[in-house]
């Protein structure tokens, strides 16, 4: 079937299978920052923003994303810089497979959490698995970015 998706403020028309996940469609369209870690909604590396809210793209049918604003890290551009800097300055980036999804989730968190606390941040990020860093450096950087001591 043919669908039209709005990704990073651009319109894409593409053919998909009816049961195709948004993750597969995004990757087919070249948005390779969106990774596949499990395909069953358990790891978070496929996270993208749907109307500004983080969603697991492996758990959404591409067809159901029609009419919504989809954002990947490619679409954040400069808006991601500050987050990237915060994470990198803590040396928190290791293999990087979880990186782009962490950046988009953090971006959404900044918009959403009005008065962020450490607990709220930990909770917000709890679906973003990372096996390398032990989260410590990531969270140090992100807390700084969120202005939480």
């Amino acid at each position: 079937m043919k669908i039209t998706l709005k990704i990073n403020n651009q319109v894409y028309t593409t053919h998909i299978d009816a049961d195709e996940s948004l993750l597969d469609t995004l990757r087919k369209l070249g948005f390779k920052s969106v990774k596949k870690g499990c395909d069953t909604g358990t790891c978070g590396v496929c996270t993208v923003l749907k109307n500004g809210k983080p969603v697991l793209s492996c758990q959404i049918l591409a067809a159901r994303a029609e009419g919504h604003d989809i954002t990947t890290v490619e679409g954040l551009g400069e808006k991601a810089d500050e987050i990237v800097d915060a994470i990198v300055s803590e040396g928190a980036d290791q293999c990087g497979y979880c990186g782009p999804s962490l950046v988009v989730t953090t971006y959404a968190m900044k918009q959403e959490l009005k008065d962020p606390t450490i607990e709220k941040i930990n909770q917000y990020l709890s679906g973003n698995l990372c096996r390398c860093s032990g989260y410590e450096g990531q969270l140090r950087g992100i807390k700084k970015y969120m202005g939480v001591k």
Binding site: V73, G96, L102
Partner: peptide, 22 residues
């Protein structure tokens, strides 16, 4: 010394290529 990893930025901005991206 703390030298930043040369691949830190491309990994976070999604441009670093993993096997399945090829």
């Amino acid at each position: 010394r703390d030298i930043r990893k040369f691949d830190a930025r491309p990994k976070l901005d999604g441009s670093w290529k993993f096997l399945d991206d090829i």
